[in-house]
Amino acid sequence: MNTQEVADKLVQLCREGKHEQAIDELYADNVVSKEPKGSPMELTEGKDAVKKKTIQWEESVEEIHSSSCSEPIVADNHFAIVMNIDATYKAHGRMAMSEICVYEVKDGKIVADEFFYRMG
């Protein structure tokens, strides 16, 4: 798959709430995932670790009130999307969040992702 195809598939799976399937199908085994500096998961390396991080996030959510995922913006081997979520978390209560997600694609797989959002 080229970058546009990977981006389109990721958006489709995210909109369907199939985050683990997206990791299984689209992520490289050696993927590097970055969250904002100071976050608990600031750096995660490897597909299994990224999948575990995603499952931990899912388990922290009590209820999702709404979520959205923009169309991707593609440039060469990178793409970006905006994700919005309004959720009630077991430990923190209800929070709305908006983030920019940037992905790098190599040989048809996501090799890096980085998430930009406001902490606290």
Rank of each mutant, 00 (worst) to 15 (best):
I100C: 10
E5M: 14
E42T: 03
A87R: 00
E71K: 07
Y117A: 07
D107P: 06
H78D: 11
K106N: 08
E35R: 09
V111N: 03
A80T: 02
D76Q: 15
V111S: 10
A75W: 15
E99H: 07
V111M: 11
I110D: 01
M97Q: 15
A75C: 14
I85E: 02
E20G: 07
S39F: 11
D29Q: 13
V6R: 05
K109E: 12
C69G: 08
L13R: 03
S98Q: 12
D107T: 14
A28Q: 06
P36N: 06
S68P: 03
I73W: 09
Q21M: 11
S66P: 00
S66A: 13
E25W: 04
M83E: 10
E42Y: 01
V11E: 03
D8W: 04
L26Y: 00
K53R: 14
Y103K: 10
D24L: 09
E59R: 10
K34R: 14
E45W: 04
V32W: 00
K90P: 07
K9M: 01
M119A: 09
H65K: 02
K53L: 13
A22I: 09
V82F: 03
T44W: 02
G93V: 01
F116G: 02
N77W: 05
V11M: 05
H78V: 11
K90I: 03
I110F: 04
I100L: 10
E16R: 09
E114W: 02
S66I: 15
S33C: 15
C101E: 08
T88F: 04
Y89G: 05
E63R: 11
E71Y: 01
A96G: 12
Q21H: 12
G17A: 12
S70C: 03
K52W: 08
D113Q: 15
E62G: 06
R94I: 00
A87S: 13
D113G: 12
Q4N: 12
E114L: 07
C14Y: 04
N77S: 12
A96S: 15
A96K: 13
I23S: 02
G38K: 01
P36V: 09
C101T: 01
D107L: 10
C101D: 04
R94Y: 00
M97E: 12
M95I: 13
V50K: 07
I73N: 03
G38V: 09
A87W: 00
M95L: 14
Q56H: 14
D8G: 05
C69P: 07
K106F: 14
S33Y: 01
Y103G: 07
A91T: 15
V31Q: 06
D24W: 06
C14S: 10
S70E: 06
N77P: 01
E42N: 05
S67F: 00
T44D: 12
N2V: 04
E104D: 14
K18L: 10
K90N: 13
M83I: 13
I64P: 03
R118N: 12
E62M: 08
T88C: 05
S68L: 03
D76T: 06
